[in-house]
Amino acid sequence: MKPIQSKEEYQAYVDDKTPNSPILKNCFNAFLVGGLICSIGQIIFEICKTRGVDESTSYTIVSMILVFCSAFLTSLNIFNKIGKFAGAGSLIPITGFANSIVSPAMEYKSEGYVMGVGAKMFTVAGPVLVYGISTSILVGIIYIIFNTQSLILV
């Protein structure tokens, strides 16, 4: 091998040396688990529908049940094993959001219930809420600007 002269050259050499993630296997697992979680959600939705629950409440029930299952599996120390197998398959559904709230809550328990559990709960999921909520507010404001007939300033 020739001596490495620059940082760029070293980075290229390192990229070449570093093994790639098994992307096909990861994608297959992600598809399988992600699809499974969504279809479980759909089954819950269908059950709600047959019992005469309206659509938006049904979607909320689906979210809450999946969040509960994710929190439960996290507290049993199982969710991280699923996550290791499934990657984005368990991260992208709402189960991943729930896990990202439950796992720091458990982790920082040793720092107490207020500044540990309470404050650190959002270390991972906080950005999701910040960007999701901010975007939704912007969407609402833009909607007002472009639909002036609906403008009912309080």
């Binding site: 991280n80 094993k81 896990n99 796992s103 920082y108």
Partner: peptide, 8 residues
């Protein structure tokens, strides 16, 4: 990350 976070 927290130990229980399901990441790869």
């Amino acid at each position: 990350f927290p130990l229980e976070l399901g990441n790869q």
